[in-house]
């Protein structure tokens, strides 16, 4: 079977399109790369949804924690404490167990026991807590001068937030937020090992990698492939976040960094 055929059969296997049976014997390198790559669809889905929703929730949560009203501040502090103080792995197990119990009395909640919704919810709450803490730290370190200038110009209320506070907060939080995004993508690999069942062998990249490692008893092929995919994903995340960070900082005086040319470092 040619590699092209394998890609046609298995490239979308993790979402249920293509060949139903997984390869069982004589695993080729092409099959391993294709299937593990196919599993990455799940990792990217979990990561993107959690980050996209978590970003807005975290902004609200950070503002709540920064609020002077104890009714807003205390719940936010508690939420952040619980989700940052306990392992994501245990949170997943716990959430799954709770969803299974809830399903029996409220059939409407049944979708939460499958990974696409339940695990995404846990990841979303988790990243909200971590990001909120980062944003809260950034809110605290917004330069006082910026806020005083806003007051002096009579900028108040909503426009003070959207034009002064929020951009500064994002600018200050951005490096730490990039790290959080990378960690979240890594955390998506936990999903199918923490209670959430894999349905019809539609798993994520780590699921397929461990499948191959179990079948061939050779970890030295599937796991490096998985590592390669994740490093690639990490690089993409760093690039995109770097571009956004550059835009957030574009009004600041840029330091001119003179990097020695590539050849000069080589010939030194």
């Amino acid at each position: 079977m040619s590699c092209l055929q394998t890609i046609q059969d298995y490239a979308l296997r993790s979402v249920g399109i293509g060949e139903r049976l997984l390869p069982r014997t004589d695993f080729t390198l092409c099959e391993q790369v294709t299937l593990i790559g196919s599993g990455m669809i799940w990792n990217i889905y979990f990561g993107l949804v959690a980050i996209a929703l978590g970003f807005f929730a975290a902004t609200g949560m950070a503002l709540a924690k920064n609020s002077r009203n104890a009714w807003l501040r205390k719940p936010a502090e508690f939420f952040i404490y619980v989700f940052r103080g306990s392992p994501l792995f245990i949170q997943m197990f716990f959430a799954y167990a709770v969803f299974v119990v809830l399903k029996q009395s409220v059939p409407f909640l049944a979708p939460f026991t499958s990974a696409w919704l339940g695990a995404t919810l846990v990841l979303f709450l988790n990243t909200t807590a971590y990001t909120a803490e980062i944003f809260y730290g950034a809110l605290q370190s917004i330069p006082k001068g910026d806020l005083e200038a806003a007051d002096a110009y009579g900028i108040t209320g909503r426009s003070r937030f959207t034009r002064i506070v929020w951009p500064s907060m994002l600018r200050l939080a951005w490096p730490a937020y990039t790290n959080e995004a990378i960690f979240l993508f890594h955390a998506t690999a936990l999903v199918f090992f923490s209670g959430f069942p894999v349905w019809q062998q539609r798993g994520d990249a780590l699921y397929y990698a461990s499948y191959f490692a179990d079948k061939t008893f050779n970890p030295f092929v599937p796991y490096p492939i998985l590592a390669g995919f994740f490093i690639l994903l990490t690089l993409v995340v760093i690039t995109i976040f770097g571009l956004v960070g550059k835009r957030l900082n574009r009004h600041l005086p840029q330091a001119v960094i003179r990097r020695p040319g590539f050849m000069r470092t080589l010939m030194r």
Binding site: F185, H186, A187, T188, A189, L190, F193, L206, A209, S210, A213, P219, Y223, L226, A227, F230, I231, T234
Partner: peptide, 11 residues
């Protein structure tokens, strides 16, 4: 740092 720790554990 570039790869999920869980993958390392299993490897």
């Amino acid at each position: 740092r570039g790869v999920p720790d869980i993958a390392f554990f299993m490897f």
